[in-house]
């Protein structure tokens, strides 16, 4: 597709991010976060396979959507209630590679839970990440409550909550969406549709075509975007965030993507996905396509891209070493914090 800009810069494709108000620096940062998310995910998987970490849950293939979504939010102003795959979002909101590795190794210093919870159960008051659990969708009404409370206090913010398409079948999603719709609360419901609820494929999960079709029933807009394209996700999220801050109420953004790994380290997706399908998924890796975009439009060079990768690898190596050596919590610590002390 040709347009005026591409004619002026014939060697490069149009910078789609310009139109979204993102600078070259912003998109490099986005890519950096995508690489870090992927790198941490791959490392945790490897550590699991090496017997060093008992359980991990992967976000591989969902990084573009997560980073695109998080970049439309403001970590100082907004609150996030992420589901267990939303590693990219919590990194943008301030968690570090070291934090993630401390959680993977379940060490005392893990900022999410002091080593109490599995990896992927995020939480940090400092970074506006509300503590989460394992039963799916329970965080969605909490996001509505955060938005309600903020409005009562006169704070203009957005409560972002994410969930898989499988979880959009839970009552808590529907009850929360309805509540937010009735009260026109500043909530962004972000569905990461990776087309599987563990082994159950989309056609057995939904009778409607899109999860976003459900929004109309609750009186707010729902859109479906390409979750492999961080800029498309960013654009949709930006609009949802603007609506929320403007008092227009909630939105549902559904990002379509592929889960490149099994559901968790204990799952084997070869038992329910064909070889062809798994190969096909690899061919639209969002990290590769965004890298190509950044190279094509001249924001990155082969050399600077390689340097970024190396920087991420070093950071993850340092984090892994630190976390592996860090102490576990004392056994008796388990008795603390049932109630306020």
């Amino acid at each position: 597709m040709m347009n005026a800009q591409s004619l002026e810069v014939p060697a490069m494709i149009a910078k789609r991010h310009d139109k979204l108000g993102l600078t070259d620096h912003d998109v490099v940062k986005m890519y950096h976060f995508m690489l870090k998310t992927r790198g941490l995910d791959d490392r945790m998987w490897l550590l699991n396979r090496a017997g060093k970490v008992p359980f991990v849950v992967s976000c591989k293939g969902q990084e573009a959507a997560q980073i695109g979504a998080a970049f439309a939010l403001n970590p100082v102003r907004d609150y996030v209630l992420p589901y267990y795959r939303d590693l990219g979002v919590v990194l943008v909101f301030g968690q570090t590679a070291k934090d993630v590795m401390l959680s993977a190794f379940a060490k005392q210093e893990d900022p999410n839970s002091g080593g109490r919870q599995m990896p992927g159960h995020f939480g940090s008051r400092e970074h506006h990440i509300v503590t989460g659990s394992s039963p799916v969708s329970t965080q969605i009404p909490h996001a509505v409550g955060i938005a309600l409370a903020a409005r009562m206090k006169g704070h203009n913010l957005v409560a972002y909550t994410s969930f898989g398409e499988g979880s959009s079948n839970q009552g808590d999603f529907h009850e929360a969406a309805n509540f937010a719709g009735v009260h026109r609360l500043p909530v962004v419901f972000f569905c990461e549709n990776n087309k599987y609820a563990i082994s159950v494929p989309l056609r057995k999960e939904l009778a409607c075509e899109h999860v976003s079709d459900r929004a109309v029933g609750y009186g707010f807009p729902g859109v479906t975007v390409d979750g492999n394209d961080p800029l498309a996700v960013y654009a949709a999220m930006k609009e949802a965030v603007a609506r929320a801050l403007d008092g227009q109420g909630p939105s549902l953004v559904e990002a379509m993507m592929d889960r490149m790994n099994p559901h968790s380290s204990d799952d084997d997706d070869r038992t329910y996905r064909s070889k062809d399908e798994l190969e096909e998924v690899k061919s639209h890796d969002p990290i590769l396509s965004f890298r190509d975009y950044l190279l094509d439009c001249g924001v990155l060079t082969e050399a600077s891209e390689k340097a970024l990768r190396e920087e991420v690898t070093v950071e993850i190596n340092v984090a892994t070493t630190y976390a592996e050596k860090a102490p576990y919590p004392h056994p008796e610590q388990a008795l603390r914090y049932v109630f306020a002390e």
Binding site: H142, V144, A147, G171, E175
Partner: peptide, 20 residues
């Protein structure tokens, strides 16, 4: 509230977490 007990409690939990 809309007639949905899980949301009544769940929304209240979110508000409590926020400090209300």
């Amino acid at each position: 509230a809309p007639l949905a007990e899980s949301a009544i409690v769940g929304v209240a939990i979110g508000a409590a977490a926020y400090g209300l």
